[in-house]
Amino acid sequence: MPDSLSFPSVSVQAPVVRLNGLRMDFHTGDGVEQVIKDVTLRIDPGEIVGLVGESGCGKSVTAKLLLGILPMPPAVVKAGSIEMFGRDLAGLPSGEREALKKFVAYVPQDPSAVLNPSFTIATQMIDMIVWYESDRKLATYFRKRHTRTVVSRARDHAAHLLEKVYIADPEQVLRRYPVQLSGGMRQRVLLAMALSGSPQLMIADEPTTALDVTVQKRTIDLLKDLVEREGLAGLYITHDLGVAREICARTYVMYAGTTVENGPTGPLLDAPLHPYTRGLVEAIPSLEGGLPRTIPGQVPDYLAPPRGCRFAPRCPEAFERCRETPERVEQAPGRQVACWLYGKEAA
């Protein structure tokens, strides 16, 4: 039913997402928070990219930006560019920005909270499906939403989507209210919903943190399977490096609003370059027991962030030079790092 590829404004060859040197400030009551300093990130078609880092380092802000739900203001883009599906988002009319959302599948953090408690799964899915077919016109939507044939076709489509996420009895689930479903079931319903547009990019913001461990594993497998089958690109945000290794081809490590290191996930985690990445890897609890090493200190105050490299105050290897902001250098093919320890002029 979806006709995504015929949609004129979406390019299938260009990188799905390209953030280049993005800097964003937040104007709050306390002053200007310089949250995003330098985010550079690329997602190619059909590729799952991980974004890892501590809480409060700007991962969710990046996700919200790409989802188009970051309120601007208070957020203001100060520098850099945001491209999605080959289109520059700066200066894109809001209607066209909204239209792009149809191509983005969103898998949120807490499946229990994002479903509306007052409506059945069927209502919520049919609303979405019919809206995506309505060319962003409310009048068209209301006419279609009250046309029996359209609604029953949308319902069939919803059932079909639920089958795609291996829900055995879609009709039963459609009739249910969110409270009547288990956490894992809700997450699957959300995955099905995510497919109801004509997605090319899936943005998953820690989709398994709210689930218990056994369900986590199954959800991750399902997600991987779906992305592969539907040929989606993906941005997978997590603080769990193990999960990143399992599903992300490439991974970006983010610290205090800067993508400090990126590369193919395996090598990146096996031989981390940036001291922060190293700290993250060492912080993984090992099976042999004992307390994992932690990175001393905490994410900086964005109202007055440190000059130069923002990790320097916590970095065991910091030296004089770190007061200046390090360039991002290509250390190995596809492997970039923003740290004064590397590059031509490295000591």
Partner: peptide, 17 residues
Amino acid sequence: AKPYVGFSQAVGMPRFL
């Protein structure tokens, strides 16, 4: 302020609805 509102916005549902 509830998450379902943000979700509905993220998937592109119209403000009116």
